[in-house]
Amino acid sequence: MLTVRKIHPAVYSPISDLITYRALPTRSIEYVDPFLFLNHHGPQVYEPNNNGLPFGPHPHRGMETVTFILDGDIAHRDSSGHESVINAGGVQWMTAGSGLIHAEVSSDQFMEEGGKLEILQLWLNLPASLKMTKPFYKGLQKEAIPSLRLDDGKVIVNLVAGDWDGHQAAFDSHIGIQLNTIYFQPGGTVTLTVPNDHNIFFYVIKGRLNANGTVINALHLAEFDHDSSELVVTAAEDSILLFGHAKPLNEPVVSQGPFVMNTQQQIMEAYDDYRKGKFGSWH
């Protein structure tokens, strides 16, 4: 059975009036290759006539973002011409690749009416061979994301990326990442199988879970050894888990602001290209 090596608390790090917990990076853990960064926004309730999410136009290069909308919505727009509003239960997948500018704000309706908001954004690294790949964006509503009901309906697995016992997920990953959100009712149990050479991403969004005998509470990230391939997870109460696994890239990671590359020189080039307008225009 896989052993929990260490449990890392997410750090409270609000952004303006947006409640935010950062699970990666923190003082106790830098990243879980190739999972680089996780911000957990909310849960909170916005009053009517609010300013919404504060993420106006900004650039990215060399990585991917996966955004999970648990409550509320996100209005996405980027310099490649993509626009969408994704509602609760939906997921956005954006490959920054060679570079783009995007904004993630709230819809006009949400800013006018207010409501519940809870959103997670996960950054995935790209290997050196794909750092400069063409940018890509796809946003899917809840209805377009396949799900499986397990343990007599006490566990619901949303298939975000990869495959689950032959069931294909909603998104294709450049590097074979498995990614799921898993909803548990009290007592719900699921057995997860992970290749020995993969790193596990295990973040408890809500509730309390028991993973191979170790209790992991909400707003905590569990780090695992590579001593087995089986992980039995049981919920003590209503719980939500962000679960993933992937083979580590084992490449240098140099990140600065919104750019993730392999060398400092490439970071400098990214800033230079951005200043020169090579990330597309923003109107």
Rank of each mutant, 00 (worst) to 15 (best):
R5M: 07
R5V: 00
I7C: 05
V11T: 14
Y12K: 15
S13T: 15
I15S: 07
D17K: 11
I19S: 13
T20E: 13
P25L: 08
T26Q: 04
R27P: 02
R27N: 13
S28P: 00
I29F: 07
E30N: 12
D33P: 02
F37G: 02
L38F: 11
H41E: 12
G42K: 11
Q44V: 01
V45G: 00
E47M: 11
N50M: 04
G52D: 05
P54Y: 13
G56F: 11
R61D: 01
R61M: 14
G62P: 02
G62K: 03
M63Q: 11
E64A: 05
T65K: 10
T67N: 05
I69N: 05
A75E: 15
A75R: 15
A75K: 15
H76Y: 08
S79Y: 02
S79W: 03
S79G: 01
G81D: 08
S84R: 06
N87M: 04
G90A: 01
V91P: 01
M94C: 03
T95N: 06
T95M: 05
L100Q: 00
S106D: 08
D108I: 02
Q109I: 07
F110D: 09
F110W: 11
E113V: 10
W123P: 10
W123M: 03
P127H: 07
S129G: 03
L130T: 06
L130D: 13
F136S: 03
I145C: 09
D151M: 09
D151G: 04
G153E: 04
A161E: 10
A161W: 05
D163V: 00
D165T: 06
F171V: 06
N180Q: 14
Y183D: 13
F184V: 11
F184W: 12
G187R: 08
T189Q: 12
L192D: 04
T193N: 14
V194I: 15
Y203R: 04
Y203Q: 05
V204T: 15
K206A: 07
L209F: 12
L209H: 13
N212T: 04
N212S: 08
A218L: 08
H220C: 10
E223R: 08
D227G: 10
S228M: 07
E230D: 14
L231H: 13
L231P: 10
T234Y: 02
A236W: 11
A236M: 12
L241Y: 12
H245I: 03
A246C: 15
A246V: 03
L249S: 04
N250E: 12
N250P: 07
V254N: 08
P258H: 07
F259W: 11
M261D: 05
N262D: 09
N262R: 10
Q265L: 03
Q266C: 01
I267A: 04
I267E: 06
M268I: 03
M268Q: 15
D272P: 00
R275F: 10
G277H: 07
K278S: 12
S281V: 05
